[in-house]
Simulated assay, not measured.
Amino acid sequence: MPNLNALSVLPLPTGPALNADESDNRLTLTLAGQPLLRLHLEHGDTLQLHLLTPGEVPAARAVWAACYWLFARQPERQQLTWHLEHAPDDALRSGLLVATDVAGQFRSERTLFWQLPQPWLGQPCNNGYPQQMIVSAGKRHPVRAPKPRGEVYRRFDARLGAWVSLRTLEVEVDLARFNRWQNSARVANFWQESGSLEQHREYLERLDADPHCLTLIGCFDDEPFAYFEAYWAKEDRIAPFYDVADYDRGIHMLVGEEHHRGPHKVASWLAALAHYLFLDDPRTQRVVAEPRADNAKMIRYMQNQCFHCEKEFDFPHKRAALMVLGRERFFDRCGLV
């Protein structure tokens, strides 16, 4: 896997790559051959950032680029301190920069940076979708925003040196692949959904018509390797088994391609999936899952990504472990790069 210390380029989902020339005390960032920002770096308990051209007001996108570069290069770095005579207003309004008690001093926090939805989301997040409560199938819950179509998330994983992305499932495109995955012995052991093409077409079309469930295909470098179901927990069968909130999301996960298995791949796609769901609606405070209680490997992988096992409980069809990931815990311990 790539060495983060040797990074000089970070591809961006929205276009050209971010290029950096970094020494012990200087950082120059360029985008599409155009200079973005030049900084003097002062190392200490917190990295201090000084503009090499004092008095200028950096563009918010330049501040964002510096944060992305420095947080990706050192996943353990939690904060940056900026020294600016003037800070861009939109950077302050978004939380990219936070004013301090010291005049001309601002900070950027890893936990806030990774909650900014762009450029990772392929489509606008649902934070503007109004809340209206309804009752369906005997359950009271918010009206859900229309489901997206196409790519919904993309990010270059610098640790893997690969793109990780999520797109919505298209039945005509993905049916044969889904059928092959479900009929593998390993997947069938846990999902118990082996069957014919027509059975799987019916299964996927039913979920496509269900407003509470979003079916997703996970890709590495645009190669499909996994199938995910993201559901609103309030309307799901899991709701009676814990203190469910209106915007909790649940996940079902299936890795279909054998060459994309392994803990380093799980760390990438599971973090990306959780990141997408937390960005999609900032009212989502928890992501939950209910793997089989005897699926020790998956439970261990999830615990490695900050999920905790709240309890075991009995579904009609299985003994399950309730795995919970809180929004605060995810972003406070965020290892995204």
Rank of each mutant, 00 (worst) to 15 (best):
Y247N: 13
M253D: 06
G256D: 01
G262H: 10
L270N: 14
Y276L: 01
R249L: 11
D246Y: 02
D246E: 13
W269N: 03
H260R: 12
G256S: 09
M253I: 15
I251Y: 01
G256K: 06
H275E: 07
G250D: 00
V266E: 10
A272W: 08
A245W: 09
F278Y: 04
H259T: 14
A267H: 14
L270M: 13
S268M: 11
L273Y: 05
H259K: 13
A267V: 07
R261T: 14
H260K: 12
A271D: 02
L270C: 10
H259G: 00
R249G: 01
G262N: 14
D246F: 09
Y276M: 08
S268E: 08
D246A: 12
K265L: 15
M253P: 00
I251N: 05
E257H: 03
D246K: 00
Y247K: 03
D248V: 04
H264R: 15
A274M: 05
S268V: 10
H275Q: 08
E257G: 03
M253Q: 11
H260N: 12
L254P: 00
L270H: 06
V255E: 04
V255L: 07
V244H: 01
Y276E: 06
L270R: 00
F278A: 07
V255R: 12
E257Y: 02
E258N: 05
P263T: 15
G262V: 15
I251C: 11
V266C: 11
G256Y: 03
G262S: 12
A267C: 09
Y247Q: 10
A274F: 00
D246I: 01
K265H: 14
M253E: 10
E258V: 11
R249P: 01
W269S: 05
V255S: 03
V266D: 14
R249Q: 12
A267D: 12
D246G: 04
F278H: 06
D248E: 07
A274Q: 02
H264N: 14
A272K: 08
L277D: 02
P263R: 15
G256R: 10
D248P: 03
R261M: 13
W269Y: 15
S268H: 10
R261N: 13
F278N: 05
I251A: 06
G256E: 04
G262R: 07
L277M: 13
G256W: 00
P263F: 13
R261A: 10
G262W: 08
V244P: 02
